[in-house]
């Protein structure tokens, strides 16, 4: 588990062992460091297992539970948000930006 994406907040109950047979459908932009997270997200998406409905990977909280539904939902939303963010944040700086900054620097040097 990569350390950069708040791994401690990954819920233990999301079934990592369910991932092995299911990576083929995974077309998201994967990096080695984030694939584990996406696999977690994937396994979370195989939502109907053993006839038990799930919501974003967890057993569906009863609507009547109110607070529970809310907390589960909030935790999932937080995880998904961080996935989306860290997916990109962990990518190396694209060349175009390195070159851009170099060009700006060269321009500045030329002015001096």
């Amino acid at each position: 588990m990569p350390s950069s994406v708040e791994p401690s907040r990954e819920p233990a109950e999301v079934g990592v062992e369910e991932c092995n047979d299911s990576q083929e459908g995974l077309h998201l932009r994967l990096q080695p460091s984030t694939s584990q997270h996406l696999r977690l997200a994937y396994s979370a998406s195989s939502s109907v297992k053993n006839g038990t409905p799930t919501w974003l990977g967890n057993p569906m909280p009863s609507r009547g539970a109110g607070g529970l539904l809310d907390r589960t939902a909030q935790a999932r939303i937080g995880q998904m948000l961080r996935h989306i963010f860290s997916d990109v944040a962990e990518e190396p700086v694209p060349d175009r930006f390195v070159k851009l900054l170099e060009a700006l620097q060269a321009q500045e040097n030329a002015r001096e």
């Binding site: 459908g25 995974l26 077309h27 994937y42 939303i77 937080g78 998904m80 948000l81 961080r82 989306i84």
Partner: peptide, 28 residues
């Protein structure tokens, strides 16, 4: 295999931009 993240991304896009911004700044 896409379902979960895709749906989340779509749902995120549906939010009004100011709400999405606030959520991303604080939550991500």
């Amino acid at each position: 295999g896409h379902l979960d993240m895709q749906d989340f991304r779509k749902a995120l896009e549906v939010l009004p931009p100011d709400q999405r911004e606030a959520l991303v700044l604080v939550g991500a």
